[in-house]
Design a protein around this nucleic acid. Sequence first.
RNA 1: GGCGGCAUAGCCAAGUGGUAAGGCAGAGGUCUGCAAAACCUUUAUCCCCCAGUUCGAAUCUGGGUGCCGCCUCCA
Length: 480
Amino acid sequence: MIRVYNTLTKQKEEFVPREPGRVSIYVCGVTPYNHPHIGNARPFITWDVIRRYLEYRGFEVQHVQNFTDIDDKIINVAQKEGRKWQEIADRYIEAYFKDMDALHIKRAHVYPRVSEHIAEIIDVVQTLVDRGYAYVMDGDVYYEVNKFDGYGKLSGRILEDMKAGARVDVNDRKKNPMDFALWKAAKPGEPSWQSPWGFGRPGWHIECSAMSLKYLGTGFDFHGGGSDLIFPHHENEIAQSEACTGECFARYWLHNGFITVNEEKMSKSLGNFFLVRDVLTHFDPEVLRFFVLSTHYRSPLDFSDDKLAEASRALGRLQNTLEAVRGYTKQRVATRPAQTDAATEKLEQVIDKARVDFCTAMDDDFNTAQAIAVLFDLTRDINTFIGNSRPVPEPEFKYLMTQAEDIFMELGGILGLFAKKEDHDANLELVENLMQLVINIRQQARQNKDWTTADLIRDCLQQMGIIIEDTPQGPRWKKK
RNA sequence: GGCGGCAUAGCCAAGUGGUAAGGCAGAGGUCUGCAAAACCUUUAUCCCCCAGUUCGAAUCUGGGUGCCGCCUCCA
């Protein structure tokens, strides 16, 4: 049973999909007006793992994530650069994919863009006007929050309370300061589309209602994003969608905590942000993933280079073990030997237990921090086994190492970790052979107790970024 | 002012009312020619404070303190 914390009910609930075996997910995407920073990336890493886990558990997942490609900020950048808004949006959508691909984030099934769904948006707005939830004012269309009984149910706000100390503009044409724009009348020089209310463009919140309803229908399963979207964005989406359809909009609302810097929210306006592309020049993408996943998705996560470096060392421990295991699985042995001893059976049990514990952790509101702890426990057991298992017969040992590699890949794959590095080096085989040669020469020196030569080789290789380890099972080398 | 969240070792961090996971860093040891990696031991009589419920609370309730976020664009 999978349980999730639902912002709507403020408690953990059992997850029951709308349709058995299928899960629908809508995640609020980005406004493409510059490169994504790691705060932006957090929900996408989170949802990538949620999706991978649901798929692992056998669900067929439909994952939709929008691009807000019409927006003041895009228009501003376009004007500043003297380019069309489409060019800006296209450029940063491309940049978005580049960064997210680097982080091994699976692509959503649909990436709807606002600019390609104007007709659907106009339909929803028109329906809201027809049903009396919206009013037209000089080419603008506003949503009238007083008309929707459930207004505030997601964010826990009460309209009356918000008016008191509200920081909202009063001097406009809205009936209530909390009313928000569904459609904005065109201003000179801005992109605009024809509508029943004249030329204009969509308001911010309406796109997600129109597009999620189009691709996922009413009452879809998961709606997610950063917790700064709870109000007003998601509150307004609910108001629009439920007023429009008369049905439940989305059933489970999941929200990420923020990434902070020195305990302050990372944000573009504060200027304290780190771009994904910049971080990836210093750290492996898996380190960033591991760092994000080492804290539960709802908790705040403080970012610094030191903390990333710590994550890198921790992940390195897991990778060391996996590399060691892979050293024995050049030839896979998938068949269980007829005869096994106690050590084999114990390791098999450890592996099965890891799978169960991992799922238990993930079932509990996608507790990746706990799931990672399971991987560390598994790692220790495998290391201990390798250290103690020299008398184990070869086929049996290889079988177990194959099992060990598989469980690492199976569980790590859910977190998007341990992807085999695509080594595009055409000289790969040559490098392998040369390394073997160098290692053989060094071994020769070691046998002759020529430590000077042996250490010289090791030191020189280290300067080239290659680590030599003399394990009890023989020398091993690795990059970095 | 309204609403919400968080406070667990040097640091990061999980924790379902039953007596504190995991990781990083540190210390000691085993292994090693020396290292590295790995393994073992060790590091919170205690979970911000106070009161309460309970046989029993880090976990529940009330009060306080501190920090953060949202209420304006924001992942």
